[in-house]
Simulated scan of single mutants.
Amino acid sequence: MRKLLPLAAVLIALTSTRADEKISAPVPKAPPPPSIEGKYTLVATYNGAVAVREKGGFGGGPGGGGPGGVAEVGGFAPSRTTLVRGETVISRTEIVIEPRTVTGMPTTMEYTLDPTKSPIAIDVEIVPVRGKKTRGLGVVEITNNRVVIALAKEGADRPKSVEEAEGVTVYYFQKAPPPPRTEFRIVALTVGKEEEAEKELNRLAKEGYELVSTTNPTAPDAKASVTTVHFILKRVVK
C-alpha cells in the first residue's frame, strides 16, 4: 500500500518549488481610447469671424434667441454661427457631412485623432470635389452625445480649445438617436386553451404590441376541425 506524505512535507515541497517564482498582480484593462465614430447632425458652425462677447452673454447675431442674442440649438449656445441641419456620418477615418439641398455636394474630411493630448488633437484634410486637399489642425471636445471640433485655418497653429476665435472654424455635432427597431411576437390560440392565449395577448398589448395579422387556421387534416390560430403582433421600439 502506498504511503501518503505527511501534510507538512507537502507544504514544504510546494513552498520550495515556488520560492523563486514571481507572482505578479493582475493588470487592469486600459479603458478604450476616445472615439467620435457614429451618426450625427451638424447643428451649427462658427465661421471663424471675430467672436465679440458682450456683458450678459455672447455677442448677438442673426437668429439669436438667448441672452445677448445667443442662438441655442441642441443644447449648444454658439455665438455668430450658421445654423444647419446637416446629417453627418463619422467613421474611423472620415467625416462626411451631407448637403442640405438636393443639388449640394457632401463635405468630406479625412482625419486622425491623438487622444493622448489634452484636449484631444485632430488633424484634418478636407477633400474638395476639385482641387487639392487643405489641411487643418484642431481639437475635439466630447461631452455625452455631443462633439465639438475646432479647426484652425491652413498653416495656422492648433487651437488651445474649442472656444470660438478668429481664424478658427467650429463644428457643433449632436449624436443621432439609434434608429427604431421592430419587434414581432406570435401567439398561438389552441382550442381548449383560449384563456391562456387571451392573457398573453392582453399582456403584449400593454407592452405596445399591435395585431398585424392572423395565420390561416390549421387542422390535422382536411376532415378535422380547426385546432390552432396564430396571431402575429409587432411593436416599434425607439
Rank of each mutant, 00 (worst) to 15 (best):
A13N: 09
D123H: 13
L83H: 02
L42R: 02
R2L: 11
V236I: 14
V226W: 11
V212F: 13
G64I: 00
A9P: 02
K55Q: 03
A51Q: 02
G75D: 00
L11A: 15
A71L: 01
T169R: 14
P106Q: 09
E54K: 09
P115W: 04
P6M: 08
E98F: 06
F76C: 01
T88N: 10
T82H: 11
D157T: 13
P217A: 07
N47R: 13
G104A: 09
N47F: 06
K132P: 08
P67H: 01
G104Y: 06
A165T: 05
S79Q: 04
G61L: 02
L7Y: 11
A205G: 08
G63L: 03
A156F: 11
S16Q: 13
I95K: 10
N202L: 14
V140T: 08
L201Q: 03
T101L: 09
T101Q: 11
A8S: 14
K132Y: 13
R18P: 00
I120P: 06
N216D: 07
E183Q: 00
P106G: 04
K238C: 05
P67A: 00
L11S: 12
P62S: 11
S161V: 02
F58H: 09
R92A: 15
T169G: 01
E207L: 04
P28W: 03
E198R: 14
T82Y: 09
E37R: 15
V127C: 03
E54N: 06
R135N: 07
R130Q: 14
L233A: 03
R53I: 03
R181C: 02
V43Q: 08
V129S: 12
P119L: 05
T93L: 09
V148I: 15
T107R: 15
G57S: 01
P115V: 08
E37V: 15
E200L: 15
P217C: 05
V140P: 08
E200H: 07
A197I: 05
I126A: 14
G56H: 01
G86V: 01
K3A: 12
I36F: 06
E166S: 08
V96Y: 07
F58Q: 05
R2K: 12
T82R: 13
P28T: 10
T169W: 07
D20M: 12
D123L: 10
R53P: 02
K160S: 13
R135M: 09
R53E: 06
P106F: 01
R146G: 02
A197H: 07
M105P: 00
S24I: 13
G60A: 13
S161F: 00
T107E: 11
G60D: 04
V237D: 01
I232H: 06
P32C: 06
F184S: 01
A8I: 10
